[in-house]
């Protein structure tokens, strides 16, 4: 499986965010998108996720499911956690697992993987920012999809959680998945390649 972008352009609200961006990520590879604020890191991820219109260039996926769009084979973790505070941790995760097409109803392993199993019955309103972030990462484990699009995944996470996330990402890559992550600093994946957006600054 390989995700190819060629000469991609993005414009939001009539303002050109970036143009001429090209990259290619294959199974087992990770791409870290870097650049100053406003260079379009988040926009690039949202564009791959099908949430922002492609203003120019091409984006295609080789070796994926032919009938599904890229967005339908991708997980997106943005700045917002997509959690409902009145639902419990378990209900939140179970819903997204079912909606995003998980095969099994069992969410225990996913909660275990992010260290939230003990809090399954607690309403999500009581979670800290880091726990919320971990819960939204749990959905990547609960409903397997080959492409992970992670926007600043390590923000709000403490060091042990970051280590756990790196572990999950390594496992995902080893299982033939691919990752595109936007980050300010290193995210702990040593073999990741870097794509720098915008002018240096």
């Amino acid at each position: 499986m390989q995700l190819n972008a060629d000469n991609l352009a993005c414009s939001r609200g009539g303002r050109d965010v970036f143009a001429g961006v090209g990259f290619s990520v294959a199974s087992g590879e990770a791409l870290v998108v870097a650049g100053r604020n406003g260079a379009g890191k988040s926009s690039l991820l949202r564009l791959i996720a099908g949430l922002v219109r492609i203003a120019g260039g091409t984006l295609d996926l080789q070796g994926g499911e032919p009938e599904a769009s890229i967005a339908e084979q991708a997980h997106y973790v943005g700045h917002q956690d997509a959690l409902k505070p009145t639902l419990s941790v378990g209900e939140n995760l179970r819903f997204w697992a079912a909606f995003l097409g998980a095969a099994a109803d069992d969410i225990e392993p996913a909660l275990e993987a992010v260290g939230l199993a003990a809090l399954a019955d607690l309403p999500a309103a009581y979670l800290s920012a880091g726990q919320r972030r971990r819960l939204s990462i749990a959905r990547l484990v609960a409903a397997p999809r080959p492409i992970w699009l992670l926007d600043e995944p390590t923000s709000a996470l403490d060091t042990p959680s970051q280590a756990r996330l790196v572990e999950l990402m390594r496992g995902h890559l080893a299982g033939g998945g691919l990752i595109v992550a936007a980050a300010h600093g290193p995210i702990g994946l040593t073999q990741a390649r870097e794509l720098r957006l915008g002018a240096e600054g």
């Binding site: 949202r46 339908e72 997106y76 917002q80 956690d81 997509a82 997204w96 909606f99």
Partner: peptide, 14 residues
Amino acid sequence: QDDGSLDLLMMGRM
């Protein structure tokens, strides 16, 4: 939309 769920709803198989 406020909590980001709408983004994920658009990425569903359905």
